[in-house]
Simulated scan of single mutants.
Amino acid sequence: MIGVGELREITPVGTPSTVTAAHVTSGLPMPKPVRVKIFSPDEWEQFVEEYGASLKSDYTQVRRFAGAGDMGVDIAGFITDQGFVGGWDNYQCKRYDHPLRPSDVWVELGKIIFYSFNGEYTAPQKHYFCASQDIGTTLQRLLADPAKLKQKCREEWADKCASHITDTQTVALEGDLLTYFDAFDFSIFSSKSALELIEGHSKTQFHAVRFGGGLPPRPAHLPPPDEPQKHESRYIRQLLDAYGEHANVEYADLPALVANAAMHGNFLRQRERFYHAEALRNFARDTVPEGTFANLQEEIYQAVVDVCDTDHANGFNRMAAVVTQAASVSSTSNPLSPATNVQDRQGICHQLANDDRLQWIVKP
């Protein structure tokens, strides 16, 4: 019989003292490796595709292969522009309900050996096994011992490889194939842990949307270059025309504007804002899915276009009214919202003017 002294008071540890409003709304965040483990088949496929995008900076070309006839190739990273004829690496990505075991990979080793022997491709320089449930300890030890991996693969060939490499024939490990097998470098086979996959994925624009946790810190804003660049020409021309209409003079170029201290000071502020928006565009390219920044531009456009179309005394007043309106826009639904400031929203107006979507001078 259980004594009273064996019972203890219920004292939940509770959650960390640094809880936020987001925790109350959504609960404590799920660790990323745990999230990967519970990905649905579709989510895993999307994650693998997104991870593949992180490899593009490491290779001349990255391609994904799928279907029954993939010949053991999943994600191929080509080191040269010669494809499978040149050097390449293979990333074999598996989704199972358990950590990857030796029994899960024998046929994959067999495919690489058989198809490279047949000349379908040269053997990869590296072959990485990647798995949603990570790599099991037994397989990890085998991958760290190429000689033992080769020995075990040879022992398992008849049962796990011969009838499973292709549907069209039984692949016996004998003759020239056996000679090729014996000479094959098994040190090419290794693995990527789930944490390594997540780290690679974190370098893509898909990471924040896939895992949450907010955007990475935005790099410090660099000042505009002293000399205007070619890609600035249209919005600068629009500004010069707007200043000229306001002052009732013609500013043919920027040196002509310098004499008007007030207008030149305004120009420097507008150019600073343009570069703020350009920096946000670059940040968006690396941190959020394609089209996110364009959607933000469209939100700003819709918020200011009616102000732009309203009657104004001159082009300068129209431009000033538009950028003032942009400063008050709250684009909370856009994923870039946490990283967007007033200067960005105002600078987007000049990006829109650069594309002639906004025009400061109304043509009769």
Rank of each mutant, 00 (worst) to 15 (best):
T25V: 09
G27L: 06
G27I: 04
L28V: 10
P29N: 09
P29K: 11
M30E: 15
P31Y: 08
P31M: 07
K32W: 09
P33Q: 09
V34E: 10
R35D: 05
R35A: 09
R35I: 08
V36K: 00
K37P: 09
K37M: 15
I38N: 13
I38T: 15
F39W: 14
S40L: 10
P41H: 10
D42M: 10
E43I: 02
E43V: 04
W44E: 04
W44I: 12
F47Y: 01
V48Y: 04
E50R: 15
Y51Q: 06
Y51T: 05
Y51V: 00
G52D: 08
G52N: 08
A53C: 04
S54P: 13
L55A: 02
L55Q: 01
S57N: 10
S57D: 11
D58K: 12
D58A: 11
Y59W: 08
Y59M: 08
T60A: 04
T60Y: 04
T60E: 06
T60S: 05
T60I: 03
Q61A: 12
V62C: 11
V62T: 14
R63D: 08
R63N: 10
R64W: 07
R64Y: 14
F65L: 15
A66V: 15
G67Q: 10
G67C: 09
A68F: 04
G69I: 02
G69P: 04
M71G: 07
G72S: 05
V73T: 07
V73M: 11
V73S: 04
D74C: 01
D74H: 00
D74S: 01
G77H: 03
G77R: 05
F78L: 06
F78D: 05
I79H: 12
T80E: 14
Q82Y: 05
Q82N: 06
G83N: 09
G83W: 00
F84M: 08
V85K: 07
G86L: 07
G87W: 01
G87V: 01
G87Y: 11
W88S: 01
Y91G: 00
Q92L: 03
Q92R: 05
C93H: 08
K94P: 11
K94G: 09
K94A: 09
R95N: 11
R95W: 00
Y96L: 09
D97M: 14
D97K: 15
D97Q: 15
H98V: 02
L100R: 03
L100C: 06
L100G: 03
L100Q: 04
L100W: 02
R101A: 15
R101Y: 13
P102V: 04
S103I: 13
D104A: 14
D104L: 06
V105L: 06
W106S: 12
W106R: 11
V107R: 14
E108A: 03
E108N: 05
E108D: 15
L109G: 01
G110K: 00
G110A: 09
I112S: 07
I112Q: 13
I112K: 02
I113N: 02
F114H: 05
Y115C: 12
S116V: 09
S116P: 14
F117N: 01
F117W: 03
N118Q: 15
G119F: 10
G119T: 07
E120F: 12
E120A: 14
Y121V: 08
Y121G: 13
Y121E: 12
T122W: 01
T122C: 11
A123P: 07
A123W: 03
P124K: 01
P124C: 06
K126F: 03
K126H: 06
Y128Q: 12
C130E: 03
C130T: 03
C130H: 03
I135M: 10
I135V: 14
I135L: 05
